[in-house]
Amino acid sequence: MIRLFLFLFFSAIKIFSQDELLDLLNEEPIEPLPVQATFKATRIVNSQSVELPRSKMLEFMVQHRFGTVENGFYDLFGLDEAAVHYDLKYGLHERLAFGLGRSSWQKTYDVMIKAKLIRQTEGQGKTFPITVVIFSNMGINALRKDAIVKDNFANRIRYLQQLIVGRKFNESVSLQVVPTWSHKNLVPAHEDEHDLFSAVLGGRIMVTRRFSINADISFPLGDRPDSFKNGWGLGCDIETGGHVFQLLLTNARGGYEGAYIEDASGSLSTGEIFLGFNITRVFSI
């Protein structure tokens, strides 16, 4: 009897001591770390997200926007026509990336820099609640010389500056707000403003580990003409290893960076909306 008791007693100690060792290891907390994957791609739908191309990785992105869906089967809901923007971005560092792009609209080339100023962190101890990114883009139209563009190179240039403030609230919900300043060196009419300010809201809800619903919309700050429309996009992310596919609907077709902010043309009421997709492919180099 007493032997059995002793045996049970010692086997109990043994199990206890293993757990105790683990508890001793556990005493050291895990340091706060930057959150990962606030968004799956570097764009939400039309707008830039707080994500940068990963460090030492080259990212190729195609933004493809079909024609308006309003003609139905005649042009297969716009699939017969397309406006495209391609870009190639490289992550120099986990917090700094640059890129080059090209749009079919007005034969615009663009260069961009994206830098992560502050990172949201999670873990035990002192954490920071938001990520802050600056995005700076310069577009250069490469149309042949005509009466409007003339010889002055500066007339071809437009700028877009954004401060992207985002937060991953939990594994499924991320939101961001983006104060935006756009500047055109040349405006179409005398009364048009060179500098325009706006705010873009965007977010996502994850449905599964590899699928999310995304949306973004822009709001002007200051006056706009009556014909102005808020650019919006609604889409989904589908992630398959090294690719992210984004299928979307939007009222802004324009291919160049920031076209969705000031140049959205369509609206749901007229049926002038566009199907489109973004494809992101990354290469490790």
């Binding site: 030492k56 990785m57 992550g91 990354v282």
Partner: peptide, 9 residues
């Protein structure tokens, strides 16, 4: 990981 995207996934 040698590849940042892989690490994230």
């Amino acid at each position: 990981f040698p590849n940042a995207l892989m690490q994230e996934h």
